[in-house]
C-alpha cells in the first residue's frame, strides 16, 4: 500500500532523513518510532506530499507522491502533530468544510460526518467553538478530520500526545478499530503505545532506519532466551552445580525464599536451555517458575538508538 524508496531529505545542510526505505502492507498498522527529532514528522510530511523529498520517492496506493500528488492526497487522511484546526469555527462547520475540500459528495456528507462524530465521541460538542475545546477534544476533532473522507491510508503524527490516560486508551482503541479497514502509519515516542497498537515497527534515529521488524521479533532480538527467571524447589543443597553443569551458564541474583530459591539463569549466547533444564530435573530438583526474561521494547529501543550515538552529528552535516 505504501512503498518508501531511498528517501533522503535535507534542510539546508542538515540531513533530516538518510536513505529511508520501508513498505506498509494493506490493512497494516505500522509504528514509526524514534526519539524526538529523529525525522518521524519529516517522513510523514513527505508521504503526505506536504514536503518534497530531496531524493528518492514513495508511492501510496500505487501513486507516486510527486508525480500523482493529487491522487495520493485524495487517498490520505492526515493528523499532523498539532491538529490543524480553525479556532473560530464550530466543530460542525469545521467538519463541513473538511468534507467539502476532501471531495466528499454532497449527498454523503451528512452520513460521513455523523459516522466520524460517533466514532470520535464528539456528539455533544458539535456546536462548540473549537477554540474553547480542551486539548483532548481538539485531538478528537483532528482525528475526525483525518477520518472524514474514509481514506485508504491514515497517517497519524503522535496521535495520543497531550491526552490524559483515559483518552489515550480511547484513541488506541479507535486506532485498533481502524486497522480493520485502513492502512495506518502512526508515529510516537511512547513505546507501550507501539506494542499495543502496531504489528510492525520502524525505528528511526537521527534520520536513519535502525530497525524494521515486528514488535515480537524486536523484543526477542535483544538476547531473548539467554536469560530466565527461575524458581526452584531444590532437592539438595548442591542444586547450583546441577544448574551450572552446562558450560557457560551462570546463576545470578540468587536468594532464598523459604524452601524455594529464586535466581536469574544466564545462558551462553548460543543458548542451550534444554541441557540445563534436563540436568536440573534429573537431580530431582523441582521448577516452580520459568520465565523467559525478554527484553522490553524500551531496552531494544535504547540499545538501537544508543549504538547510533557514535555516528556524530558532524557526520550528518554534509559539506555543501
Amino acid at each position: 500500500m505504501i512503498e518508501v524508496q531511498n528517501v533522503t531529505k535535507y534542510y539546508g545542510n542538515f540531513r533530516a532523513l538518510d536513505n529511508i526505505s520501508f513498505s506498509v502492507a494493506k490493512g497494516e498498522v505500522l509504528g514509526l518510532l524514534g526519539p524526538n527529532g529523529a525525522g518521524k514528522t519529516t517522513a510523514m510530511r513527505i508521504l503526505t506530499c506536504f514536503l518534497p523529498a530531496s531524493s528518492g520517492t514513495a508511492t501510496v496506493a500505487g501513486f507516486d507522491i510527486f508525480e500523482d500528488s493529487l491522487e495520493v492526497r485524495r487517498r490520505l487522511g492526515y493528523l499532523p502533530e498539532t491538529p490543524p484546526l480553525y479556532p473560530e469555527m464550530t466543530v460542525k462547520s469545521y467538519l463541513k468544510f473538511i468534507a467539502d475540500i476532501r471531495e466528499v459528495p454532497a449527498k454523503m456528507q451528512r452520513e460521513r460526518i455523523d459516522k466520524v462524530v460517533v466514532r470520535t465521541a464528539l456528539g455533544d460538542h458539535l456546536d462548540r467553538v473549537i477554540g474553547t475545546l480542551s486539548k483532548g477534544f481538539r485531538q478528537r476533532v483532528g482525528l475526525a478530520q483525518a477520518l472524514l473522507h474514509d481514506p485508504e491510508v491514515l497517517i497519524l503524527d503522535e496521535p495520543t500526545v497531550g491526552l490524559d490516560p483515559n483518552q489515550i486508551i480511547e484513541i488506541r482503541g479507535l486506532i485498533q478499530d481502524l486497522a480493520a479497514d485502513h492502512t495506518v502509519i502512526l508515529s510516537t515516542h511512547i513505546l507501550p503505545e507501539v506494542s499495543m497498537t502496531c504489528k510492525r515497527v520502524v525505528i528511526i534515529n537521527e534520520g536513519r532506519i535502525v530497525a524494521v521488524d515486528t514488535v515480537e521479533n524486536l523484543e526477542g532480538k535483544s538476547g531473548q532466551a539467554t536469560r530466565y527467571k527461575i524458581g526452584l524447589k531444590p532437592a539438595s543443597l548442591d542444586w547450583k552445580s546441577a544448574v551450572e553443569s552446562v558450560p557457560g551458564t551462570r546463576v545470578e541474583h540468587e536468594r532464598v525464599e523459604g524452601e524455594l530459591v529464586r535466581f536469574d539463569l544466564c545462558l551462553p549466547p548460543e543458548g542451550g536451555y534444554e541441557g540445563v533444564f534436563k540436568a536440573v530435573v534429573a537431580k530431582g530438583h523441582i521448577f516452580t517458575e520459568i520465565t523467559p526474561a525478554r527484553a522490553s521494547l524500551e531496552e531494544v529501543f535504547l540499545r538501537l538508538t544508543r549504538t547510533e550515538e557514535g555516528a556524530s552529528a558532524a557526520e550528518r552535516k554534509v559539506a555543501a
Partner: peptide, 14 residues
C-alpha cells in the same frame, strides 16, 4: 502560523 496550511496542502486542493 497555526499550521492549518498543512491541512490545506495535504488535502486534494490546489
Amino acid at each position: 502560523r497555526t499550521n492549518t496550511i498543512e491541512l490545506l496542502l495535504t488535502s486534494p486542493v490546489s
